[in-house]
Amino acid sequence: MAAPTVAPAGQLPLATPPAGIPSRRRRAHPGETRAAWTLAIPFTLLFAAFTVWPVLQSLFMSFTDTKEKDLRTPFAVNFIGLGNYARALGDPTFVKAAANTAYFVVVGVPLTLAVALLAAVALDKGITRLRAVYRLGFYTPVITSIVAVAVVWRFILQPDSGLANTVLGWFGIQGPNWLGEVQWAMPSLILMATWRNFGTGMIIFLAGLQSVPPSLQEAAAIDGANAWQRFWNITFPLLRPTLLFVSVTTAIGYLQFFEEPFVMTSGGPLNSTISLSMYTYNQFGYGNYGLAAAMSYLIFVVIAVVTALQFRLLRENT
C-alpha cells in the first residue's frame, strides 16, 4: 500500500480549504484554555502521583544501593551507577531465571498460538453443534483462579496416583514425576500455561476468522483450491493483524510469567522453573530494592525488544 502523499493527477486537491474560510484554526479563547487546564488538573495530579512518580522513583532506585532499611530516608542512599545492573547480570541464578523464561516463551508462545488458532478454526468451521458450550469451556480456564487451577493440576500431575500417569499407565508407559524432575517440570508448566491461556487467543482468532469475507473463500473454491490452500493462502494472510495482536499480548504475558512456578513448584526443582519475575519478586522480599528495581528494568527492556521484533516480523508487507 503506497502512502497517499501525492495527490493523483487530475484529482482536485481536497486538502485545500474552499476560499472564504480562514485557513488558520480559530484561536482558542484564553478563558477556554484556563478552563481546559483546570479540568485536566485532577487527572494530571493523579497521573503524576501514581504513575509518573513511582516510575521515576523506581528508576532512581535501580541506580542506587537502596535497601529495606533505607525506607524511612529514601534519598539518603548512594548512587552506584550501573552497579545493580552489573550485579544482576553477573548473578548465576538471574541468568538461570533468564534462560528458564526464554525456554518458557520460545516454546510456550508458539504452542499457545497454535492451540488457540486450532480451537478457533474448529469452532468456526468444524464444530457446529453446541458451539457456545465449547467456546465457554475453552475460555473457562482463563477466568478461573490460578490457585484453584494449581490444586487440580497438582493432583493431575501426581507421580503415583495422578490422572496423567494413570492414563499413561493404561498404555504401559511409566509416567515421570512431572513437577519433581528437572527435565519435566518446565514442560509441565508450559502445558498448564497453554491450557490456561489459549482461550483468550481463541476468542480473538475467532473474531478474526469471522471477518474473512466468505466471497473470497468461494472464489478460491471455484478456482479449485482445496481447504488447506484456502486456509494457507487466504485466511491466514488476512489473519496477520490478529496474529500480531495475540502474539504480542501472549509474549508480554509469558515474559512476565510468575504465577505458575509460584503456586506449583516454588521455582524448583533445583531452580529449573524459577522465572525472571519470580526471582525479582524474591529480591524485593529480601529488601534489596535497588537490585530488584534494576532487574525489573532489565525485564522491561527485554519485553520492549521482543515486542519490537514481533512488530517487525509480523507487520503488513508493503
Binding site: 509518573v52 521515576l56 539518603a76 548512594n78
Partner: peptide, 25 residues
C-alpha cells in the same frame, strides 16, 4: 510551552533528588 515547562519541572525534580542523595556519614 506547557510541555516545555513540565519537562523542565521533571528534570529539576530529578536533579534535586540526585543532589539530595548520598548516605550521611
Amino acid at each position: 510551552p506547557a510541555m516545555r515547562t513540565s519537562a523542565i519541572a521533571v528534570l529539576s525534580v530529578a536533579a534535586l533528588t540526585l543532589a539530595g542523595c548520598g548516605r550521611p556519614t
